[in-house]
């Protein structure tokens, strides 16, 4: 019964939390702009609607184009098994943090190749940018993980992302949090790196890669992207937020995710997208912050 409850709560987190998080971001942005905005559940409605639609495939495409959304979603779901969502993660072992990073890389690789499969110059452009910018995000992620692993004494996500009370805890947490937050924005195509709601394909990164996908394929991609955001956000939440009384582990995680969504919404409302040549500079700043964090853990 206990395991059943655990699986049910995990499933809840994997299926429902991600779209709702995106809904909260949209709602926050609307509220700041003085609009009413779409309902919080709109991303979920979109996904369900897309699952019921047919599809149009370009004549240029091959099986790679169809495989991309499937494998990228599977990789993100596998990554979810490693993340301590509400309680202990489904699978946890020494070194799972590296696998977590590389599962995202797998998802990125298949998304990029699926985009190149269309032979469209726009999608090639998106693929080229995605591949380039993630090259700066990945070292920041690894450096932040390194400082967390060193200070917690284990290379497992569950140990790294837990409240920590050792020496210079606050400073190293803040630095890791800062760099991870920038990586979260960059990897999940949020402002200031990418704008998922723009109408000009020329300025997009992630969205332009999936221009040709429709129907269930697009639903898989959207849900994969939302889940990726939720997974990274839940790591950040666990890093700073202890379990709160009254609401329990699941409740505090959900509250934390909602708060993260509001913060992302506020960031998106308060600034414009950076010029593309500025994006590497932002990510290098994240690398520097993570390196300082690493320095602080060495004493």
């Amino acid at each position: 019964m206990e395991t059943l409850k655990l699986v049910a709560s995990d499933l809840l987190m994997v299926v429902f939390a991600p779209p709702i998080m995106l809904g909260i971001i949209a709602k926050t942005k609307a509220a700041v702009a003085g609009r009413k905005g779409p309902p919080v559940l709109q991303p979920l409605y979109d996904t369900i609607k897309l699952l019921g639609k047919g599809a149009v495939y370009s004549k240029t495409t091959t099986w790679m184009f169809r495989l991309g959304p499937v494998v990228s979603l599977a990789a993100v779901i596998a990554a979810a098994a490693l993340v301590p969502l509400a309680r202990a993660p489904l699978i946890s072992f020494n070194g799972d943090a590296i696998l977590f990073v590389y599962l995202f890389a797998l998802g990125r690789f298949v998304t990029i190749t699926a985009a190149l499969d269309t032979g469209s110059s726009f999608e090639g452009m998106g693929a080229s940018r995605e591949a380039a910018f993630s090259s700066f995000a990945e070292p920041a992620l690894i450096l932040a993980f390194a400082s967390l692993a060193y200070r917690s004494g284990g290379l497992t996500l569950a140990r790294m992302f837990a409240p920590y009370g050792g020496p210079s805890a606050a400073a190293s947490t803040v630095l890791a949090l800062g760099s991870l937050f920038v990586v979260l924005l960059a990897e999940n195509s949020r402002i200031p790196v990418d704008d998922p709601n723009t109408h000009l394909e020329l300025t997009m990164i992630h969205e332009v890669m999936v221009l040709d996908h429709g129907g269930p394929d697009l639903a898989f991609i959207l849900h994969g992207a939302e889940l990726k955001l939720a997974l990274m956000a839940s790591l950040l939440v666990r890093l700073v937020m202890p379990e709160m009384p009254l609401v329990g582990a699941v409740g505090s995680l959900i509250l934390g995710l909602a708060a993260t969504a509001v913060v992302i919404g506020l960031v998106e409302s308060s600034m414009a997208r950076l010029r593309l040549i500025r994006v590497p500079q932002l990510l290098v700043a994240a690398i520097c912050a993570a390196t300082f964090g690493l320095l602080l853990t060495l004493r």
Partner: peptide, 9 residues
């Protein structure tokens, strides 16, 4: 469902 084929967008 209807699955169509067309040119790349």
């Amino acid at each position: 469902r209807e699955v169509a084929r067309g040119p790349t967008w």
